[in-house]
Nucleic acid binder design. Structure first.
Lengths: 343, 343
DNA sequence: ACAATGAACGTTAGCGTTAACGTAATAACG
DNA sequence: CGTTATTACGTTAACGCTAACGTTCATTGT
């Protein structure tokens, strides 16, 4: 039944014939450039619409040797974090007439490389990668490619081309300092089960940094292999509580922190009396919790907009800051002590 | 500093010259088709790699009049639902050598139409839309396009081309019947704030269906305009509790149901003693809640895989079922009564 | 020994579009 | 009124690649 749908591809030539004009007039009319009178332009557009003419972008991109595609590579769609960054970027690109092509690498630099290669074959206008952890080949490919490259989410002084992000090491230090100030002495960190998440590593390092400087306690850590963030937080917490009894647990994000809260609740521990809980990213979930979650605010949507804007400027050849550091904001909540309790 | 990166685009011709063979031999070697000896193929591939040759997909697609792109249109990236469907599809397409180009419409049929038009200009191999609510122009465009079209997430007997999805009206009925069986008599429904979500409407209709048949009570409903699902659930619940005192509240999804739970908790209502709460979609969050959430399981990842598989078969000209109904599973939990309490 | 076969390569002619230039007709101007 | 701009088109030659044939040369069968 209706197996092969007919493919009467109508091309610019067909429209030109039907309108009694040259191919070029149709091309000009469609693109909205100068060179046709308003009268014939209207006629051509009407006929094109009637014939359901759809321009062939492959031919166009081949002829002009570029496209209005911008490739965006994210680790994952799961969780709100990258969705927020993405939505900020997409709207900005849309308004500027660019289409975005999105891919997720699932935290694999190899997958990223493959995707970069495939994407480059489409002659994109620019390319966006998440973070700074790329294969040497990827960097090599992008450094010689004639297009702007944006690295987003992490910050460095030496990007491939330009970058916009936060300092994850500093984020770890901020949480650590906050915990230290409140008198916590045995911190722990619950990280993601996945492969290469250098942001997690950086935050843990920042946390360790503060505590090793101030005290002699080692920061405990758990890295359970669960199916989702909530479960990861729950299980990581369970593992830590079975071990060396931390007095505060920091999590990779608020979802994991919520899993941790649920674990504490299941074990009859009260937060923050018995243990402190700190998240990261200030996610939507936090807005309905009875107890305000201690977390760090990252302006992800804003970061997306800034990144996209810088990239567009770069595409247009304007001078832009090569790197842009987004600020972090510590949000003290009720899942950690509100007052210092010095030993 | 380093403003314009040099664009020494190396083309197939350059590789051919350097390897002392014809352009066609390079083309054949790169694509892995017959017509070159293994020896020269190896030589060519080595040189191509050295020269960092990246094929031009625009030229290729123009020459062969198609591409290996599959366009996927989703309402949003927010929430796990569409991400799950997506991940099921993407893996399947990747394995088959297709690239997916994703777009989100934010529930706007106009945005969908614009995207379909843009996408068709890239000569994609197939196109996927979420749901059945499209502009007439969109349907018209896709019916004449020479490519397969998959409608996913909702089910109908009359798809544009093929479809895979669940029956959302039935889902509403299932929740309704479950509530009715447990003795609930005054149900309410909290829906999404957004525009066109026909799935929400269908589920509410199913719920109404059951209750209008069995009792004379009207189903209450709330549709608050909040920034995120959790807050929507919270606020919708607050509005309902301020009004006609429902004995069970059903939500568009588990995230909203959690918001509702938090609202009840804030008001000192115990669940399920004072009020019943039912979600939808069985989301990750539910796995860590102390009280098992009453919900309906939708096999979204599985749906993505099935949809993708059917679509690939259709691309390859195979006979496939035009429509496929995914089953729903009622998951009774502890946020509704576990036993009927007849009036 | 000699046509017939086939593997390994090369040549030609597009794919649908646009940049760059060419041309005709009209308007502007001293 | 003749020259020069200006506007509104049309023509030609790419863009980088591949399908569809050609060509060459070593095998093979009889």
């Amino acid at each position: 039944m209706n197996m092969s749908k007919k493919g009467a591809t109508v091309k610019i030539e067909d429209v030109a014939a039907r309108a009694n004009v040259s191919i070029m007039s149709v091309s000009r009319a469609i693109r909205g450039v100068e060179g046709v009178s308003e009268k014939t332009r209207a006629k051509i557009l009407k006929i094109a619409r009637q014939m359901k003419y759809v321009p062939n972008s492959n031919a166009r991109s081949l002829a002009v040797a570029n496209s209005n595609l911008i490739g965006i590579s994210l680790p994952t769609f799961a969780g709100e974090v990258f969705g927020d960054i993405l939505s900020g970027m997409r709207r900005t690109f849309d308004l500027a007439g660019y289409s975005s092509v999105i891919d997720t690498t699932e935290y694999s630099p190899e997958a990223e490389l493959n995707w970069v290669r495939r994407l480059l074959s489409w002659q994109p206008a620019a390319i966006i990668l998440t973070g700074l952890d790329h294969k040497p080949e990827t960097i090599d490919l992008l450094e010689t490619a004639p297009i702007p490259v944006l690295e987003i989410w992490e910050h460095t002084d030496h990007p491939i081309d330009i970058c916009v992000g936060v300092d994850h090491h500093k984020a770890g230090q901020m949480i650590g300092q906050h915990a230290l100030d409140l008198g916590y002495r045995q911190p722990a960190f619950v990280s993601a089960p996945r492969g290469h998440d250098t942001r997690a590593d950086a935050r843990l390092a920042g946390l360790r940094d503060v505590f090793s400087r101030a005290t002699s306690t080692a920061v405990l850590s758990a890295r359970p292999a669960s199916g989702n963030s909530f479960a990861t937080g729950f299980e990581g917490t369970a593992a830590l509580l079975d071990g060396d009894a931390p007095d505060i647990i920091c999590y990779l994000n608020d979802h994991m922190a919520f899993g941790g809260l649920m674990c504490c609740q299941a074990r009859g521990l009260s937060v923050p009396q018995d243990i402190g809980i700190a998240g990261f990213n200030e996610l939507d979930l936090a807005s309905v919790l009875p107890k305000k979650l201690t977390t760090i605010r990252t302006l992800r949507r804003q970061m997306g907009v800034t990144g996209a804007t810088h990239l567009l400027a770069r595409i247009n050849g304007a001078q832009v800051e090569r790197t842009k550091l987004q600020p972090l904001e510590m949000i003290p909540g009720e899942t950690t002590r509100t007052q210092s309790r010095l030993p």
